[in-house]
Design a protein around this nucleic acid. Structure first.
Length: 594
RNA sequence: CGGGAUGUGGCGCAGCUUGGUAGCGCACUUCGUUCGGGACGAAGGGGACACAGGUUCGAAUCCUGUCAUCCCGACCA
């Protein structure tokens, strides 16, 4: 392709709307144009990048035995009503774009394809003999994101590879799940990305296992915790660790002390010469369940630790076997509205009686009590006395009465010891989630009544897995990982062009001839090459080549008369003066080695 | 949805306080000089200032409302 024909429009100024460097470079390099909030046009350069990523994904998925399809983007609402997601995806979360057709039938634009694919699997697969299958598609998905941002990182229309596997038993699902993990790692490695696979929360979607693939980058919105030996990685919602040792609390007697206005751990400690780890902190939260049931929770945790709300939600959902819509703290407004003055916030103990709930409208009348292991393992501690301005020292669980539920509801933090090896400390990094694999189990197949006949001749719901991979997000994440002050440095396998020939002076016949020959020769060898034939000054061409990030540059200039050209690597800036034939060979070599 | 900010040619901005009918840099067009790291000079083209009301002889500027975009929180590939 000749640059003069490429519709290349680069910008010197950074658009005000672009916050992170990858977004800025995509806009400045003319890769994308915003059409409206969260909706982008992929310009010719961008489309080439996306096609290369798609090709790699397709190759690896096909190698893993997956089958490519293309599924509809308009989904009938009935299908989503059957899985129980229509309400929450349209009215509730509102993440699903929906519309009426002229027949007044309700349709939605697919944010994901579980419903459609499960329906098709049900219609097409009748016997265990047809299993397993793994079906995938790469296409545009729609999500009416609450807050689109960072260009393609979180857009409302985006390209995703999504696959779904169907199995006759859980073990077989595990096998495909594992093979997808390997496939994903190969895909990311081939795209030149450094990724970390982390244990993830499968929470609301359910299932037994789930892994996220994170591109490590400072601009990432997710926090991940890893161990240096590479044996442990998890996102913050799921991460576990061993908290630091508590400081021994061992007063001569247990008694109630007066602690006027000391309703925070900090004040309590500084006034009474205590350590946060000697205190059991008690927090009331409200879990909103299905049908607007409001379940009060009484959470106890060591004073120096923090609550992990996702773990709390999972615990509640498991314990009472109901879906948790969300978790709320009790704020001041609510304290006033519900007239909670009789509850001595700031002075609560784990033995707070249920009778404080008697006159609170809307709440269930019994606490669901949970004690985090960090608190449960304390032999002797300080806690609130359930009376304003009073705490108790030298307390123990025996004195308070038996503990009901113990669970891990604690937020793991960097610097804490790893569970698999206490000498290892957790490190914190930011990541961009570009892939997520799940063992769904039978949740969707059951709700959609998608079944097959098993070996015993009985109807059984499919075991399912699902495997997402954000194509457009991956492209931008790659820039986040591969750029410098001059622009993008695409990894060769996903670069829009592998090389660019910069002709210093188009009016010089020798330069024009040599560059033309190299161009033709490279095309003949299958190299994706750009010929910058514009009558721009050299500086402009160099700047543009750097900005759009072509991995190799061949400069045809002052040495052309001697049959020499320069070959420059974008990332390292290494420059070699060689014959044109050598330049072609070098790039061909690089291409084939990837 | 809650909190904050901003809307002026394709991009970045000034003008608004103290109303008088729009300006700068980049980009674009033409000519000349230049020509290995975003050249210089000259001459041009393009915007009724987000929209709708109002105040006024007169509104980008003041008032009211609406809309859009961006940033901070819950959601997610």
């Amino acid at each position: 392709m000749r640059v003069s024909r490429l519709m290349l429009v680069t910008q010197r100024d950074v658009p005000a709307e672009a916050e992170i460097v990858s977004h800025q470079l995509l806009v400045r390099g003319g890769y994308i144009r915003r059409v409206t909030s969260g909706i982008y046009a992929y310009m010719p350069l961008m489309w080439r990048v996306l096609r290369k990523i798609k090709a790699i994904v397709e190759e690896e998925m096909d190698n893993a035995g997956a089958l490519q399809t293309l599924l509809p983007q308009l989904h009938p609402s009935e299908l989503w009503e059957r899985s129980g997601r229509w309400q929450s995806y349209t009215a509730g979360e509102g993440i699903m774009f929906h519309l009426m057709d002229r027949q007044k039938r309700s349709l939605g634009l697919g944010p994901t394809h579980e419903e459609v694919i499960t329906k098709i699997a049900d219609e097409q697969i009748h016997s265990y003999k047809q299993l397993p299958v793994n079906i995938y598609q790469i296409q545009t998905k729609f999500r009416d994101e609450i807050r689109p941002r960072f260009g393609l990182m979180r857009s409302r229309e985006f390209i995703m590879k999504d696959s779904y596997s169907f199995h006759s038993n859980e073990k077989d699902l595990g096998k495909t799940y594992k093979s997808m993990e390997v496939t994903y790692k190969r895909i990311f490695a081939r795209c030149g990305l450094e990724t970390v696979a982390v244990d993830a929360d499968s929470g609301a979607i359910g299932g037994s296992a789930s892994q996220e693939f994170m591109v490590t980058a400072d601009a990432g919105e997710d926090l991940i915790l890893t161990s240096k030996d590479g044996l442990y990685a998890a996102n913050q919602e799921k991460a576990v660790s061993i908290p630091k040792e508590a400081i021994l609390h061992n007063p001569s007697e247990s008694k109630t002390i007066s602690t006027p206005n000391q309703n925070s751990i900090l004040e309590l400690c500084s006034t009474n010469n205590l350590e946060p780890s000697q205190i059991v902190k008690v927090i009331i939260m409200i879990a909103i369940l299905e049908e607007q049931v409001e379940q009060p929770l009484l959470l106890s945790i060591r004073g120096d630790q923090e609550i992990n709300e996702v773990k709390v939600i999972n615990f509640v959902a498991e314990t009472i076997n109901k879906q948790v819509i969300k978790l709320d703290q009790v704020n001041d407004e609510e304290k006033n509205r519900l007239k909670l003055d009789h509850i001595p916030f700031g002075f609560l103990g784990p033995d707070l009686k249920d009778n404080v709930l008697e006159n609170i409208s809307g709440w269930q009348k019994q606490f669901l009590r949970v004690t985090d292991h960090s608190a449960a393992s304390l032999d002797c501690f300080v806690c609130g006395a359930n009376v304003k301005d009073k705490h108790r020292i030298g307390m123990s669980w025996e004195k308070l009465g038996e503990l009901t539920n113990k669970a891990d509801i604690r937020k793991a933090q960097k610097g804490e010891s790893c569970v698999h090896d206490p000498t290892m400390k957790l490190e914190e990094r930011h990541g961009i989630e570009i892939g997520h694999i799940f063992q769904l189990g039978r949740k969707y197949s059951k709700s959609l009544q998608a079944t097959f006949t098993n070996e015993q001749g009985q109807e059984e719901a499919f075991w399912m897995g699902c495997y997402g991979l954000g194509i457009t997000r991956l492209a931008q994440a790659a820039i986040e990982q591969h750029h410098d002050e001059h622009g993008i440095c695409w990894p060769l396998p996903i670069a829009p062009f592998e090389a660019v020939i910069v002709v210093i002076n188009m009016k010089e016949p020798i330069q024009e001839e040599i560059s033309g020959n190299i161009y033709k020769a490279m095309l003949a060898k299958g190299i994706d090459v750009l010929l910058d034939d514009r009558s721009e000054r050299a500086g402009v061409k160099f700047k543009d080549a750097d900005l759009i990030g072509i991995p190799w540059r061949i400069v045809v200039g002052r040495d052309a008369a001697n049959g020499k050209v320069e070959i420059v690597q974008r990332v390292s800036r290494e420059t070699l003066l060689v014959d044109s034939e050598q330049a072609i060979q070098r790039i061909l070599q690089e291409k084939l080695s990837k």
